[in-house]
Design a protein around this nucleic acid. Structure first.
Lengths: 364, 364
DNA sequence: TGTTAGCACTCTTTTTCTTTGAGTGCTAAT
DNA sequence: ATTAGCACTCAAAGAAAAAGAGTGCTAACA
């Protein structure tokens, strides 16, 4: 089990009285700040803890037995285990709710005027990276759900053509094709018509090699000349599918020396597969994954991701990769707010469209 | 002075007799391999050195006085200084000339079928990154020299339009514009014509805000509606100019622990400006720059860049950023070969075009 | 019974001192 | 001009000692 949801799990709670929970929270709070093992004295000196170090030591011993804390060595303080962090995130930490100023600040980061959901998510990713000093991870599955709106071919030089594909989600991709011969006007017109008739409205996800082969076969006399173009169309569609996951702000991880740089390098090399595997599972809206615990590559790091929805379906994810000792109480609300806001903004668009369409019908 | 050319400089040579030069070269060779200070014994044990350690010590003392070597501390061996590396690269090292196998291998990396110079350079950059285990740096100035071939506007949804710009160098960029109103067919046709008449053949570099403002002013009744599109055109052109410099394979630097990771992170943050400054100067065809010596950011690293030409002008640069103790004798020939090859391939294209054009004239 | 003061004990960290050895620079001999 | 020999330097490695943070346990206490 690598994933966690924010909703409280009551299972274990009854084993821990209020004081132990408080102490565990305090240890993790302190560890997140200092990065050093936390001793009983330090906890005892906190204002809302009113018991002696000895009592705290006893409780800590219990917490260790339950697997929430561990000692690097006999005479050191305690540090949280993965389970400790889990419990902390699920039940213990007090997630600060955002102030109006914070909300406004985050809103300002969001580039509301941009036309595509992609760009919106991109700006949120930048915000996260700057505000949390973490690497950010973005998964955009909207291309999968979207359909082809338009396929154009534009001559751009002798035997050179630009293929253009536009999707309903507003994404565009182009590709240069070098053909063996120049196309006649008639051939180009046929191609445009053929594409419009056969590919418009087709989902990116459906556009397999087979579909294209059928199209090629049905092309008759144009087959020989136009096949390379169709191959290009295929590659464009593939491109939409591929470029789903983006990791950025990696430099934020490099700066930290509690994270092994070699591991980061390794992670960056196959980030796409790794992250894809992580996010494919249909966990809750917000999940927190820990490094090296279930296949995630970077030890001593955690990944927090939250889903963006559109019309009930998951349209993407946004999150951060940071150190294990991350200020979860601050970062998680940020991520929740941003993904929530994006979800809102995306659906607003829809509403607006619907209204407009009604208006139009009225007009006509 | 931060730049170096490969051509020998004779200025200082007369101060160094053949043996001292040999010893300096041997020290640097050894240091490049081991990374440890090199002592007189190690040098004396080399087959083609036929003097005693004591003699070598004397010579090394001289080399140190001349500023080519230095001692980390009194009782350690010698390591090269920046000037030492300079002399080594300029005169001392024996650059291995490439074997036929190596040439073939490099040729295979080059994606000859790709249509744009960009992609060609890109594949060379990948080759360098894999073969030298360095970060690579690419500067592509071809967009600057190229002219606009085509500007298209394609409707892609209500009030949504895709602007497309294609340049003579085969580069394409697109941008989504959201307008306040839908365009009529007539407006779109006007725009296409207007663009064709006024922007086709205009150099990317010339397309300033002013030019566009003039165009806007001359647009008459269409002004209000079409201004946002022209603004988009402007941004597209800017995009071509901006995206000149690409650094990739940074992970190769991260793996090394003789290079400070924090410095790498810092460098990556403003790589564009840094590299731009480095390459703007019109030095020789191949230059070697050293870190922290003249403004380059990463200490203990070096940057080797070679120019790619087209029609006598510089069309771009390609090179690597690696550790100071780099196998220059191997890497420099690689870079020289690749940039040479690309220069050839780019001009071949031209020749072919010219021939064809002649043929065509004959036909008509 | 839960809490706490006290204390012995453990184990890392820091410091100090010693040893080792690679490598030099100088001198005198070749 | 080159080299063997030797005293000297200094980082690195090792050993020993001291410091200190923190624990676990016991016994006292409310």
């Amino acid at each position: 089990m690598t994933a966690q949801v924010l909703k409280p799990r009551k299972e274990v709670s009854f084993l821990l009285d209020e004081r132990k929970r408080k102490i565990l929270a305090a240890v993790i709070d302190a560890y997140i700040v200092t990065g050093e093992p936390v001793g009983s004295k330090a906890i005892a000196s906190l204002p809302d803890i009113r018991v002696s170090p000895a009592t705290i030591r006893n409780d800590m011993a219990v917490l260790e037995q339950l697997g929430y804390l561990e000692q690097p060595h006999t005479s050191a303080g305690r540090i949280p285990t993965y389970s400790g962090y889990r419990l902390y995130i699920d039940e213990l930490m007090n997630a600060k709710s955002l102030s109006d100023e914070e909300k406004q600040m985050l809103d300002e980061y969001l580039d509301v005027d941009v036309p595509t959901a992609d760009a919106l998510i991109e700006s949120a990713s930048k915000a996260l990276s700057e505000l949390t000093h973490c690497a950010t991870v973005v998964k955009n599955v909207s291309p999968k759900f979207s359909v082809i709106t338009k396929v154009e071919v534009i001559p751009t030089g002798r035997r050179m053509y630009v293929l253009l594909m536009i999707t309903s989600s507003g994404n565009i991709r182009n590709k240069v094709c070098r053909l063996e011969f120049d196309l006649t006007n008639e051939q180009m017109e046929f191609f445009s018509r053929y594409m419009a008739e056969n590919l418009q409205g087709v989902s990116i996800d459906e556009l397999s090699e087979e579909t294209v082969e059928k199209l090629v076969a049905a092309m008759g006399t144009y087959m020989v000349t136009l096949t390379p173009l169709l191959k290009g169309v295929c590659e464009l569609a593939e491109g939409f599918k591929d470029n789903e996951i983006k990791v950025s702000g990696e430099k934020n991880l490099l700066a930290r020396q509690d994270i092994n740089n070699a591991q980061i390098a390794k992670f960056l090399e196959n980030k796409n597969e790794v992250v894809k595997n992580m996010l494919d599972d249909s966990f809750g809206d917000l999940q927190v994954l820990f490094g090296e615990d279930g296949g995630f590559i970077i030890e001593n790091s955690s990944m927090i991701v939250s889903k963006i929805k559109k019309g009930g379906k998951t349209a993407g994810s946004l999150g951060v990769i940071g150190p294990m000792r991350l200020d979860y109480a601050k970062v998680i609300p940020y991520i929740e707010y941003l993904t929530g806001r994006i979800t809102e903004l995306i659906s607003e668009d829809d509403d607006e469209d619907d209204e407009d369409q009604l208006q139009r019908k009225g007009e006509s």
